[in-house]
Amino acid sequence: MNLSPLDTAIFLVLGLFGVGFYALLIVRHLIKLVIALQILVKAAVVALAAAGAASGKLELGASLALSVIVVDTVVAVVALALALQVRKHFGTLDVSELGTLRG
């Protein structure tokens, strides 16, 4: 079977999507959660680039992918800054300890 990059894109996106969301459900370490988010962002980048290619507008998809990388890097930075602050005040990065607000 001859798979083109576009066909593998679907497989890749779904795989990363699954891994990322599984991690968000299971992982308790805040920094690792940010890593999971980054994995999801990879899925989005791949999806956009591939979608651009699929619709014959490679440069459009690539441009979107670029923007996503930039934006989500900022989000990651913000998340890490928050994580440091959490570490300082909660003494841990276990998000299960961040469960004081409930009910």
């Binding site: 996106v13 999507f17 990322g20 969301f21 968000l24 805040l30 959660l33 988010l37 999801l40 962002v41 899925a43 989005a44 999806a47 956009l48 996503v68 989500d72 989000v75 913000v78 998340a79 928050l82 994580a83 602050q85 959490v86 005040h89 909660f90 998000v95 961040l98 469960g99 004081t100 607000l101």
Partner: peptide, 20 residues
Amino acid sequence: LEAGVKYLVQSAAGSVMILL
């Protein structure tokens, strides 16, 4: 901080869905 973390992670997960 706790609220911010939850907001960020859930919202970021949502925005990946939007991108897909």
